[in-house]
Design a protein around this nucleic acid. Structure first.
Length: 176
DNA sequence: TAGGCCATCTGGTCCT
DNA sequence: AGGACCAGATGGCCTA
């Protein structure tokens, strides 16, 4: 069975949306377009999009609802694209091996978390893990960092994070 | 071919 | 009221 690519499918959907969102010129056109849209919607649904069985709470007539639905679909797509852009930006700042293979979202988040822990531990190590000494003006940031770190990790060994992180970036790529 | 990952649609809920 | 956010459902793509 040969299926459409995602991009091709998306083009079809955009096409259908454009068709539907064209302003009708008369009430006859309304009926005609509603019918055409329903038929096209069936096609869309056959092609991978399913209505859920949740209860509908529709306001306005069917066509108004369809228009609003299409508009919110578009907003949702844009929202998800922004989210994915943010994931991509995050991927680009996380060092990992075998960079030719894209990190999954869960890998990205997990590595990011451990990377942050590692950097924090490294910073604290560089300052000998001491609570900041006077003068207070220069130590404020370090103090907050240390306090926050201690709250999160208690008495854990800082070196543990470095080890954990370096082990993880290898196991992620080799294990997958 | 099964399983992981992903994009998209959808309706409900929260927030402004 | 309308948009943002969320979670469930579904099907496509890819890889082992």
């Amino acid at each position: 069975m040969k299926t459409k690519t995602r991009a091709a499918k998306r083009r079809l959907v955009v096409d259908l949306e454009d068709d539907f969102l064209e302003q009708p010129t008369s009430s006859e056109d309304d009926n005609e377009k509603c019918y055409v849209y329903k038929e096209k919607s069936k096609l869309k649904n056959q092609d991978g999009v399913k209505n859920t069985s949740k209860k509908k709470k529709q306001s306005g007539n069917g066509k108004e609802h369809s228009v609003r639905r299409l508009e919110s679909n578009e907003r949702e797509r844009q929202r998800m694209h922004k989210l994915n852009n943010a994931f991509q930006a995050l991927r680009e700042v996380i060092p990992h091996v075998r960079a030719e293979k894209k990190l999954s979202k869960i890998e990205t988040l997990t590595l990011a978390k451990n990377y942050i822990n590692t950097l924090t531990a490294t910073i604290l190590n560089m300052s000998s893990g001491r609570l900041p000494a006077v003068p207070p003006t220069r130590s404020q940031n370090g103090g907050k960092l240390y306090q926050h770190y201690q709250q999160q990790h208690g008495e854990e060994d800082n070196d543990e994070h470095l080890e954990k992180y370096s082990t993880q970036i290898h196991s992620f790529r080799q294990g997958s």
